[in-house]
Amino acid sequence: MNVETSYSGSTAVAVVDGRVDSANAKDFDEELSAIIDRGVSSLVVDCGGLNYISSAGLRVLLIAIRKTNEAGGGLALCAVPDHIREVLEVSGFVRLTKVFATADEARASFSG
């Protein structure tokens, strides 16, 4: 798993690739927490390179959704591969966060 983040004011886009499971969920949590702790309230998680996520990774996303909601922004996902999208649907996460085709669309959703 690797996370690369670009910042623009209180908005950030985190591009996640690889695999998030119980073995590295803690690292993923630390990455997202560090981004939010820098004052980011609107976080886009770009899942274009994400090839695997288990419930341990969903837990990390849930924490980040809560934190960004509390900060008055939110968390949006983009470029979600079909098989990951199915995990989000089955686990009810599509009700907790919006899913966009591109990072630009996701970012624009926060500025409205």
Partner: peptide, 14 residues
């Protein structure tokens, strides 16, 4: 909603 969601049981649900 996210504030009240728990992840326990989600793995088995999947």
């Amino acid at each position: 909603p996210a504030e009240d969601r728990r992840v326990g049981g989600l793995g088995i649900h999947l």
